[in-house]
Design a protein around this nucleic acid. Structure first.
Lengths: 213, 213
DNA sequence: ACATTAAACGAACGTTCGTTCTATTCTGCG
DNA sequence: CGCAGAATAGAACGAACGTTCGTTTAATGT
């Protein structure tokens, strides 16, 4: 019972720390010190560093779903939801949901060249993320909000690239315009494949209004 | 004299190793072992790990210039050169100029959340890279190859995002279509701001022909 | 309240980290 | 050839790493 609670609070800190120092730079000693507990006591919750890393990835994934995807999924399916996901993603970096920037962008570039279970777990999270993104795009097509010849995988690739690009420009280069640039690019890209002659549906808004701050 | 040579060969290995393990995961003991020399002998060339990291960044920057920028700068200035840079960049990842993918993408995401000289050095490399990219875009504008209202910083942001996105998709997700996707997106983006009524210049080619494999 | 189980501790393990010495070997120049 | 100086090796340092152990504290169920 109590173990569950401490484990959860350990993971919260672990995820925050890893987003700054990296999953490999995440160290048991430092984590224990910051939490005011012993190395061995903390260690017992996981059994190995790798298990801690895997649990941290899982926890970060949950936080991402809660703070980025869940709110965006409340927007009506189709074009509005797709735009909501984009805005939600950019906001998630600006709001510093992870103090070191996007946890998964960092983890991806840290483990993209090494084998192992950690790398596999990171890859799975990204596959899931792309799956969700492509699903939102496909829905927008099905709703008749996007041109029929749109390739969901292609568009998801481009949107994700712009997200990561914004994360990079904001965190490393301290480019305050990073989000404005990303939003501009995303809006232009989405508008280029948007259908306005929605077959049976009524509701429609001015394009730029979707991209609120 | 001899020191210069060994130092250079150390840095070659260091850069390769760091592109896989990260600049922090780059360890003096392992590097020395792989090179068949003693830790202390290797260490003496740099004086500290941070100096080794800084030298590795410098060396990686030189390799990038030699293998990516220099060849592309032989294309005629303007639109062709801009396209050449894009193709050269994508090729640089596919050819595995750095065995762990783009050295600077990895370093950027590793150090984007920490202070220090290493982070500053990475940032400087990226600033230089963006400077070169924006310069190529501005030249294309000056040559009358791009619309006059093109914002070089905005376009550079988008191109870089697509580059990093391709690097990510290829190395982590093993997406064989990553380069095709990036090229498609880049071509579409560049075509959208391309001018065909070049004022005084004669030479012109079919758009898609620039994007050769 | 007490017995049982879970949770956290503190000390120590062997290893590797970056770093500092001193001693030895090699190299290039007069 | 010989000698100065550079280059490398080797041993050792304290600190931190992940991990294991036996013990003590705290929570739980009855």
């Amino acid at each position: 019972m109590k173990g569950q609670r401490t484990r959860a609070s350990i993971l919260q800190h672990a995820v925050d720390l890893a987003s700054v120092e990296g999953l490999e730079g995440l160290t048991i000693g430092r984590l224990a010190e910051e939490l005011g507990m012993s190395k061995s006591g903390l260690f017992a919750h996981f059994g190995s560093k790798e298990e801690l890393q895997l649990a941290a990835i899982e926890s970060a994934g949950q936080r991402f779903i809660d703070t980025v995807m869940r709110p965006a999924l409340e927007a009506p399916r189709g074009y509005p939801r797709l735009v909501a996901i984009c805005n939600s993603w950019l906001d998630y970096v600006r709001r510093r949901v992870f103090p070191g920037g996007c946890f998964f962008a960092a983890a991806s570039f840290e483990f993209d060249g090494r084998p192992g279970m950690v790398r596999d777990a990171v890859k799975k999270q990204m596959d899931d993320w792309f799956g969700a993104l492509e699903r939102a795009i496909r829905m927008a097509k099905d709703e008749g909000h996007l041109e029929a010849d749109v390739d969901p995988a292609q568009l998801a690739f481009e949107l994700n690239a712009l997200f990561f690009g914004a994360n990079f420009a904001y965190n490393l280069r301290h480019d305050e315009e990073a989000f404005a640039r990303a939003r501009r690019a995303i809006e232009q890209r989405l508008e280029s494949v948007r259908r306005y002659d929605v077959p049976p549906a009524p509701s429609r808004r001015a394009a730029a209004r979707d991209f609120v701050d």
